[in-house]
Structures are given as structure tokens and as C-alpha cells.
């Protein structure tokens, strides 16, 4: 039994190692590639895992601390996997003056999480962004890349339900 668990851990580690190798070999082993590599890992694996940090540091011959320092500096990288669906609320100035804070509060209340968190069922991640440059439509909510313009607190539930319904559709 213990042997089997050990094996499966080893298999997993091997798998992630080979995934990382595939990513890393696309880049030159130079320090200036660090942010490019992090982008690639984030988009392919959904987050930057401790083992990814280790592999990157080994490849670029820099300390793990340095990789960690850079990745936590930028908003684009996360240390934890995100939920299946991302709800992004624009908090740019144009959206702010048109009532985005109230919209964010309502999303937060409905999902029972604050901005930056993921629901317990790992279904939703609530995020804010500082401006998506579609100011004519403010306040804006983005669900998996789909824009909802002129959002009011009334529409929040509808938007969440729409994403949930997608869930139903996919199951069928």
C-alpha cells in the first residue's frame, strides 16, 4: 500500500517535471526570460507551484527566493490554483464613479468571498482589475472573458446564475 502511494507520488512528480521541462526548453536559460517563463507556466498550469519554482530556479541558476520574489511582485502570477470560472470586476476610475464599488460588494455578498478569493467549491474566483479600457461600458463585470456592461447591483445575481447555468449545460 505504502509502496503504491509512494509510486503515485513519484509518478506525479515525474509528470510535472516533464511538463516543466517542456515549458522550460522553449526559453534560453537566461535570467531575463524569468517573466516570460512565469507567464507560460501560469497560463498552462493555472498557478505557479512550489515544484515549478524549484525547476525554474534550477534552470535559470538563480535562487528559489528570487523566483518567488519576482512572481509575488506581479499581479499576473498566483501561488494557488484559481476557480473554474473567474469573475473580474473593473475598479477603474470611470467604473468607480459610476458605482463599481457597490457592484463588487454585491458580488462579494452573493458569493460569500472577498476580491482575490475562490469559493470553497473551487467554482468561482472573484477578482478586481484596475481598468480594462472599456470605460464607455462602466461599471463592467467580466465572466471568463465575456464583458457585461453597465452592470447594476440588480443584475449581479443574473450574471452569477448565467455562469452557473453554463455549468448545467456542460454537464448535460
Amino acid at each position: 500500500m505504502i509502496c503504491r502511494i509512494k509510486n503515485s507520488i513519484l509518478m506525479k512528480r515525474k509528470k510535472s517535471q516533464s511538463e516543466m521541462e517542456n515549458i522550460l526548453k522553449q526559453f534560453k536559460p537566461e535570467k531575463k526570460e524569468l517573466i516570460h517563463i512565469l507567464h507560460k507556466v501560469q497560463s498552462e498550469q493555472g498557478f505557479i507551484s512550489p515544484s515549478a519554482i524549484f525547476e525554474i530556479s534550477k534552470y535559470l541558476r538563480i535562487s528559489e527566493g528570487e523566483v518567488y520574489g519576482v512572481l509575488t511582485f506581479y499581479n499576473a502570477f498566483t501561488l494557488e490554483p484559481k476557480g473554474k470560472h473567474t469573475l473580474t470586476i473593473c475598479m477603474g476610475t470611470a467604473c468607480h464613479v459610476r458605482g463599481a464599488p457597490a457592484v463588487l460588494d454585491e458580488f462579494s455578498r452573493q458569493l460569500d468571498i472577498t476580491a482575490g478569493q475562490t469559493t470553497e467549491d473551487k467554482y468561482f474566483t472573484l477578482e478586481t482589475v484596475n481598468c480594462v479600457g472599456a470605460c464607455a461600458l462602466g461599471p463592467i463585470a467580466i465572466t471568463d472573458g465575456h464583458y457585461h456592461g453597465h452592470v447594476t447591483t440588480k443584475e449581479v445575481k443574473k450574471i452569477i446564475d448565467e455562469v452557473k447555468e453554463e455549468k448545467g449545460k456542460n454537464r448535460k
Binding site: E30, K31, K32, E33, L34, I35, H36, L38, H39, G69, V70, F73, Y74, N75, A76, F77, N130
Partner: peptide, 22 residues
Amino acid sequence: KGAGAFVSGEETSLMSSIEGRR
């Protein structure tokens, strides 16, 4: 491609970022 930090719009920060640092 930037990585989401407002300060990287400042010229010397931007260069640090291109160099692969904070």
C-alpha cells in the same frame, strides 16, 4: 508582455521588468 504592476509604467521600473526582475 507586462505582468500587472502599475509601477512598471515608470521608466526605470519598466527597464527592471524587461531585465526579468521586480
